[in-house]
């Protein structure tokens, strides 16, 4: 069984670590008894990385993201974000979070949705306007400022929710299957845009997905997870260049990485059948 937990590259400079998890575990108390959602997760995510978490449902990839975001509290081990606890990081607005659905407020126009975090932080009106304009540009939504979410397509709604997560300029972007509900073509398009955006802004991105091509195409590092209990089974460094046109997905290099991810996923599953 493949259980080698690839310890975060020891060579990486400690100060560069954005997320550091040590022996992290989380057990949910449910009516059917305790459920181990995460077990013994050791991971360091460095500044500027694009890390994908991939695995079948119930492998804890979303839970791990929620622990980083302080939406769940770990029951074992430690985790730090920019050297702070998740709670402190959340209070310091250290990250932007993109959910599975756009979760835009239907009573607000797109620009007011994007400006929502800025209102809560309490920025000046002028500063809000400038940032809304900049992030709407970044996700190619200029011209749709006055529309309501329900007047936009699913892909545009999700782009608006990415703009909202970018609006307050946190260095860390947490994305929980943001394109899961979209069709293949829109998804390809948004993947391209996301890569471009990541290069432009130099943010650290944690990206949860269960699509192998998506994970390989986007990431600098792929974390393969397996369920019951949710744990990391493999960490794969991508050898793909930073510049990635869509047809890179047919290159042998790409296919080799995809094959390794698939093997990792299969290994995590093997004991079930």
């Amino acid at each position: 069984m493949l259980m080698t937990v690839n310890q975060a590259t020891a060579t990486s400079v400690e100060r560069n670590a954005v997320v550091e998890a040590r022996q992290l575990g989380l057990t949910f108390q449910t009516n059917d008894g305790p459920v181990r959602a995460l077990s013994d997760v050791n991971l360091t995510i460095n500044k500027g990385e694009f890390v994908s978490f991939i695995g079948p449902s119930g492998c804890g990839k979303t839970t791990f993201l929620r622990v980083i975001a302080d939406l769940e509290q770990p029951t074992e081990g430690t985790i730090s974000i920019n050297g702070m606890t998740p709670e402190q990081a959340r209070q310091a607005r250290a990250y932007g979070y993109v959910f599975q659905a756009a979760a835009l407020f239907p009573w607000r126009t797109i620009e007011n949705n994007v400006g929502l975090p800025l209102e809560i932080i309490g920025l000046s009106k002028a500063e809000q306007q400038a940032r809304i304009k900049r992030t709407m540009d970044l996700v190619n939504l200029t011209g749709f400022e006055k529309k309501y979410p329900w007047q936009l397509s699913g892909g545009m709604q999700q782009r608006a929710s990415i703009a909202r997560a970018l609006a307050f300029d946190a260095d860390l972007l947490l994305m929980d299957e943001p394109f899961g509900a979209l069709d293949e073509i829109v998804r390809d398009h948004l993947n391209e845009q996301l890569l471009r955006l990541w290069r432009q802004t130099n943010k650290t991105i944690c990206f949860v997905t269960h699509s192998i091509p998506e994970a390989v195409y986007l990431s600098t590092r792929i974390v393969v997870m397996s369920p019951r209990p949710g744990r990391v089974t493999d960490v794969i460094e991508s050898t793909l260049p930073a510049e990635r046109p869509l047809d890179i997905r047919e290159s042998p290099e790409f296919l080799a990485i995809a094959a390794r991810v698939r093997d990792g996923l299969r290994a995590g599953h093997s004991y079930e059948d």
Binding site: A69, L71, R90, Q91, A92, G96, A103
Partner: peptide
Amino acid sequence: DLMRTYAS
């Protein structure tokens, strides 16, 4: 959850 991530 979204509002929580904004520390609202």
